[in-house]
Write a protein that binds this DNA or RNA. Structure first.
Lengths: 241, 241
DNA sequence: GCGTTGACTATTGTCTGACAATCTCGATAG
DNA sequence: CTATCGAGATTGTCAGACAATAGTCAACGC
């Protein structure tokens, strides 16, 4: 009873529904600003309107969806200021996570963190984007596990989901991947040295660098959207995979 | 349009319903562990089951309510470890808020923070508990306003709500109020000196002190509950004001 | 030609009722 | 006293209904 393995593995229709929509948003299957009419969410998930609405309410509270009165759910968009705020918050939390990791993580977890970093490097060298993503997730899992604070982990998970939209930006930007790897190695090194202050600082720097890039991409995208005029936000129709 | 005055002032039935239940939980009208059958929530709020369920889903995501499958919603309880984690997270966030306040707040807000602190002291000296609560809220509002990060403010608001259960513990504990006031004045002084590091440190210390007390109260309460045996968690019936 | 008005449609917000699945608790038998 | 079983209560999910509201677009007047 001490473990928490079945934390989020409900089998109810509602949980499956919420997971399905959340995954679709986080994975980029549904794009920011895109409308999500309840009927189409019903078709997508197979659930009834009532159940879909409960799931939407949950995702809304998580910040992934915004509901416009009498217009329905929309995949949340982030203004530049909102993105800045969220990245700043993420830097705080991930910095603290790094500090707590140094203070609390077992030697095994320290090794695991280093391994994950090198695994990311390997995947990147091989051009394996899926591997990069998977191991980046693993990095976060190991980090929060070592920090040993469930509330912190939960908060970071929510933030990661909200920022998932920018996730692909780091891949295609010249030189970014190399710098990112250097930052991750810096974190691993600081952790191995059990230097809490250095670990915190390098975590913060890592996120700040990611934020800088993401904000550039966001600004670019905004500009593109402005040029495209008031483009109709497409619905799910015709958005089949 | 630049302000955000109508942030959470929806007039829909669902929003009113969620606010009503949230207020009841945060204010202590409903106690932790207490069951909240949907029918009674309907009676309490006047809304239908569907609407109540949507509101419950929202409060569940906020962490205020826990739903047990086929048993229904329950006011969330906090284990000692959970409370410890949340207080630790709060200390981080409020520390960062203090730091950002020093870096960003206008002189007017610095004055407002000091005024709020002294107002708390005055209310406490007068035995005005309502005033203490109100001005404590005001302190948080001023602090987060000066920190100028909406995401941080939102995260702190959620945490405050989750910890609202312990709010009354600080009042009746010999000497606690005086120490608390000293801590708050320390924060105000650090902020007035525009000393970011000192502000952060004093905010962290303030929360750590509050956490220490709250955890003692929690342990005491746990012990009491253990002595009382597996007492049936009461429902809303007969819990009229 | 262009802006305004008004009806029409699509969608959401909310309620009601229904039914199966599951939990709770008391009765009953050993 | 304990274990089993069944009735009742509550949740989980669905389907349908209706009013309220936003968006669309054609008709109309200037």
């Amino acid at each position: 009873m001490d473990d928490a393995e079945h934390e989020r593995s409900g089998f109810g229709v509602r949980e499956i529904t919420a997971d399905r929509i959340r995954t679709a948003v986080v994975s980029g299957e549904l794009l920011p600003g895109q409308r999500l009419p309840e009927r189409e969410l019903c078709a997508l998930t197979g659930a009834s309107r009532a159940t879909v609405r409960e799931a939407v309410r949950q995702l809304e509270t998580e910040g992934l969806i915004t509901t416009i009165p009498y217009r329905g759910p929309v995949v949340s968009t982030l203004s530049e200021q909102e993105a800045r705020d969220i990245y700043e918050l993420r830097a705080m939390l991930e910095g603290q996570a790094g500090r707590l990791f140094v203070e609390r993580a077992s030697d095994e977890l320290v090794v695991a963190l280093r391994c994950t970093v090198e695994e990311i490097g390997r995947a990147h060298a091989a051009g394996d984007m899926v591997g990069v993503i998977a191991n980046s997730d693993e990095f976060y899992v190991v980090l929060t596990k070592g920090a040993a604070n469930k509330a912190l982990s939960q908060a970071l998970l929510t933030i990661h989901n909200r920022l998932a939209l920018f996730r692909f930006s780091s891949t295609r930007w010249p030189g970014r991947a190399e710098r990112s790897m250097a930052e991750l190695r810096e974190i691993a090194t600081a952790v191995e040295a059990r230097d809490a202050a250095a670990a915190e600082a390098s975590c913060v720097r890592h996120i700040e660098a990611a934020a800088e890039l993401a904000l550039m991409v966001l600004a670019e995208r905004m500009q593109g959207a402005a040029i495209a005029g008031r483009s109709r936000a497409p619905s799910l129709i015709g958005a089949k995979s």
